[in-house]
Amino acid sequence: MIEVRELREMVELERVDALFDDIWHFGPGAPPITIELMRALSHAGGYVAGAFDGDVLVGGSVGFLAADRTLHSHVTGATRRGAGLDLKLHQRRWALERGLERVTWTYDPLVRRNAHFNLAKLGARPVEYLPCFYGILDDAINQGDESDRLLASWPLTAPHVEAPARREPYDLPDPGDAGDAVVALADEGGRPVAAPVGDARRVLVAVPGDVEGLRRSDPGAAKAWRHAVRDVLGGLMAEGHAVTGFSGKRYYVVERA
């Protein structure tokens, strides 16, 4: 059973730093957060937590208070299945205890499992597309890719968030099931192919099956996906259309206004 608790001591923060490096293998001087900043955030009332399986640290998360009664989760990593969900649920309880209304975080829109976890499992929704938000990242996972990110917003008291947080079923229909959905960006043979959607009210935007593997095996294809999703999904969001879900573990669902 995984236990999540807040961390404050330097020896604990050093373990989180080591866990993050084991996950991402950051280059020298390029971690997403330093031990010293974790210490400062924890002391100042920010969010620094670890997930433990017995005495083994299997996940960590660091966040800070943001505007509009929000906790912004800056970095979260886990090495054990289930630890990511436990960390998110701990974040939710922590935020609610402090009168906060939402948790936000950024994630790579090309990573399917993260999109499914964030949108389909947690019920968060992307509210902004951020091109190359952190610049070029050279860690082992990003492989020099441009760091496009989606800003996800998690409304902590919405019914579709509260029920799963209580481990109760919630009948949230797959938004891509409707017959009127039109594919705006398709995966054809591992390559992105955009298509006209006419006046379709609901459109689907595909992402690659394994962009992390693609960065190693075919960097050109990974770059093509990056720019295609930026143009299609980012373009739709810039026009004011809403991302309402992630369908079939492969498509963003966008409702056009």
Rank of each mutant, 00 (worst) to 15 (best):
G213K: 07
E162F: 03
P173W: 15
G189I: 01
G220L: 05
P219L: 04
D177N: 13
P159N: 15
G198E: 09
A158Y: 09
R216M: 06
G213E: 15
R191D: 09
A222S: 15
D174I: 00
P159C: 03
D174G: 06
W154R: 11
P192W: 00
L185I: 00
V182N: 00
D171Q: 11
D171H: 13
T157I: 00
E168Q: 08
V182S: 03
P192E: 07
V232T: 04
S217I: 00
V197Q: 06
P173V: 12
V182D: 00
H227S: 14
V161P: 08
S153L: 14
G198Q: 13
D171P: 03
A228Q: 02
W154L: 00
E188G: 02
A206Q: 02
K223C: 00
D199S: 03
G190T: 09
A163Y: 12
R230S: 14
G190C: 07
D218H: 09
D187W: 08
D180W: 10
A224Y: 04
A195S: 15
A184G: 06
D210R: 08
D180I: 08
A221P: 01
R166T: 02
L172P: 00
V203M: 12
E212V: 01
V229S: 10
G209E: 12
W154I: 03
Y170I: 09
A181D: 04
G176M: 04
V211K: 02
P219Y: 01
G179V: 02
P169V: 02
P164K: 12
W154F: 14
L214K: 04
R167D: 07
A200T: 06
R216W: 09
V197C: 13
Y170C: 04
G179E: 10
D180H: 12
L156A: 06
R226V: 04
R230W: 08
D210E: 07
P159S: 11
R215E: 03
D177E: 15
A165H: 13
R216G: 02
A228I: 04
V197A: 11
P159E: 14
A195Q: 12
G220R: 14
G198Y: 05
R166S: 06
A194C: 06
A195H: 12
A228C: 10
R216C: 03
D210Y: 01
R226L: 03
R167N: 11
Y170W: 11
L185A: 08
P219H: 02
D218M: 10
V211E: 02
V211M: 13
W225T: 01
G220A: 09
R191H: 13
D177H: 01
P173D: 14
G213Y: 04
W225H: 12
E188N: 03
